[in-house]
Simulated assay, not measured.
Amino acid sequence: MKAPIMEVFSSIQGEGLLIGRRQIFVRFAGCNMDCSYCDTVKSRNSSAGRETTIDELQKKIESILTPDFHSISFTGGEPLLQADFIKKFLEKNKYKSLLETNGSLPEEVKKLANLISHASVDIKLPEHFSGDNKDDLIEREIDSLNILISRRVKVYCKVVMLPTTKVDTIGHVAKTIKENISDPSRVVMVLQPASPLDYWVQHTPKLFKMSEKVGEHLNVLTIPQVHKLLEVR
């Protein structure tokens, strides 16, 4: 079995609840969405990756392991397009892992939910992407969250905030998630101001209002992309 992998590298996690952890990032090529804020545009195309076997991936990971290694981050692109590959890899190699996903493929989430330790579900707003199947996207993302919660995965949802994002939109999304997930206490919403951060420096009151609105429904954190501040991958 092979999967299209763009790169495998060691770095510091700069987003979400594992921020600051040393991880090995496995970036798959290919995505089922076209998000406006994507910072790895090349990864959208599956042909951008090198077809890699499970054994080849394991050897690469072993060659860059460090004493401070915490976990593997499966990212992309959309790693759930390669759920069968990841499943076989984790069945063979018992690493702690983070799945970074857009949550649009709940049936693929089921394949991995017993094998991963952490998950980041990127909640998309209508302004974030173009393409079909927008109407039921939030329902599929919520299905993915519920699957992960039921399997005791440490899960958080992430919302990228653009300068155009409205406070009420963020609040509505948080309310919808709270009302439709099995255990709201198990989910944190991470608000991620889009890079570069120049806009947000001038609009911190908006950040506070967004956090307050989400806080009416879910636990909330506001965290920028720290790896970009450090200028690392």
Score class of each variant (00 low, 15 high):
154 K>P: 00
22 R>L: 01
44 R>K: 14
25 F>W: 10
54 I>E: 07
159 V>N: 02
110 K>S: 12
102 N>A: 04
158 K>N: 05
30 G>H: 11
231 E>L: 08
15 E>R: 03
36 S>W: 08
188 V>T: 15
69 F>S: 07
79 P>S: 04
62 E>P: 07
120 S>I: 08
141 E>Y: 02
41 V>I: 15
74 F>Q: 08
225 Q>F: 05
157 C>D: 00
157 C>S: 15
175 K>W: 06
86 I>F: 01
58 Q>E: 15
79 P>L: 03
159 V>T: 14
233 R>Y: 08
32 N>R: 12
115 L>N: 05
91 E>H: 09
180 N>L: 13
60 K>T: 15
227 H>V: 05
198 D>P: 04
221 L>G: 00
9 F>T: 06
134 K>G: 13
135 D>R: 13
146 N>G: 08
137 L>W: 04
158 K>I: 03
229 L>D: 04
118 H>E: 10
163 P>I: 04
232 V>Y: 05
196 P>H: 09
114 N>R: 13
194 A>N: 11
226 V>Y: 03
207 L>C: 10
13 Q>I: 11
5 I>Y: 01
160 V>Q: 08
116 I>W: 04
38 C>V: 14
72 I>D: 02
39 D>V: 14
110 K>F: 06
203 H>F: 13
51 E>R: 11
158 K>S: 02
184 P>A: 08
71 S>M: 05
3 A>E: 12
218 L>P: 07
197 L>P: 09
100 E>Y: 00
187 V>R: 10
196 P>V: 14
104 S>V: 00
39 D>R: 10
133 N>Q: 13
203 H>G: 11
182 S>Y: 06
221 L>V: 11
20 G>R: 03
92 K>Q: 13
18 L>K: 00
168 D>G: 02
180 N>P: 09
104 S>I: 01
175 K>E: 14
115 L>I: 06
13 Q>A: 05
190 V>G: 01
2 K>L: 11
